[in-house]
Design a protein around this nucleic acid. Structure first.
Lengths: 168, 168
DNA sequence: AATATAGCTGGACGCTGTATAGTATGCAAT
DNA sequence: ATTGCATACTATACAGCGTCCAGCTATATT
């Protein structure tokens, strides 16, 4: 069902992802979905977290470099799903297992860069906000402009933030 | 009508701001609203831009200092309307007259700080994204925690960005 | 063999934004 | 003074939404 929901969203967009349309795709009555999901909100929560599974963990790069790679990967994933991006912010970044995993990886990389404790949690928030925010703000444009210009812009700002974070 | 919409939103939240509820408040049939507004989306656009009118232009402070003050004021305004914040991002910051004015003030302050042309437009985007993004992400928390901690966090990141921007 | 449970169905409720058609009011031009 | 027209309203209605309720059936458990 999550898979069907993601297909439907991928093919026809967020607005077309209604309980009735999803039920039709599954050849099932609309209310049958409520045997699997308490409501549409948590279904979308699941979709949001599932999308985050596409983010690549950085296999190389330590500390700030790794963070840069991770955030850039996240940015690319978000741009692939422009209409979902505002939802991440509305839900403060989603709380599923994939989101949690990303948070842990980020904290590990921050620790490598010498940032731990309260400053690390602050840095985490700044980086998440900046990345999702930039994706939300440039979503339309980036799709049109083949992402090159906004991505460069994103990376420049990201660099400034990382410089400030690691400078203590 | 815009005033009534803002009242209704202020009193009962975004979800309660329906065409029917607004019509009832105005003692009018629901569809009568469509003599004044083409659809609900542009009504909300108007509300969003109207809210931005609450942001204070910095009367003192030049360049980076002024920008810091302006963004902090914007952040405070946004926090006053948590449920609207995701909408700003979904619409790339709104395009009404108030939004336009803010953009011009920001560009002027950037110019004072020696940033003009393409870098200025990039800086503009980074600052807007960061501010709205942070507001969206901390909205719930900030209301509960009386805003002190997230605001400090916001200002720290903002400082890093401004340092990067003005360093060229 | 009896029973519980998971997954479904038909139908409905209350809500949403909005289209259509018609009506009363006030102002402009003849 | 009368005609004409735009503005703002009304009543009604449509299609769509998320979701609740009651009941059926097949499968799994004891």
């Amino acid at each position: 069902m999550l898979a069907a929901a993601r297909e439907l969203h991928g093919e026809r967009g967020l607005d077309a992802l209604t309980m009735r349309a999803l039920a039709e795709r599954l050849q099932v009555a609309p209310n049958a979905l409520y045997s699997h999901v308490p409501n549409k909100t948590t279904l979308i929560d699941d979709v949001l977290d599932n999308v985050l599974g596409e983010v690549d963990d950085p296999t190389f790069g330590t500390g700030a470099d790794g963070l840069h790679a991770l955030m850039a990967s996240t940015y690319r994933v978000l741009l692939r799903h422009p209409d979902l991006v505002p939802l991440y912010l509305a839900r403060q970044g989603a709380r599923g297992t994939n989101a949690q995993h990303l948070g842990e990886v980020m904290l590990a990389l921050l620790a490598e860069a010498g940032v731990v404790g309260a400053p690390a949690r602050e840095a985490l928030r700044v980086l998440i906000v900046y990345t999702i925010g930039f994706a939300a703000y440039t979503a339309d444009e980036a799709v049109v402009l083949s992402a090159a210009e906004p991505t460069a812009n994103f990376q420049r700002g990201l660099h400034w933030l990382l410089a400030g974070i690691t400078a203590g």
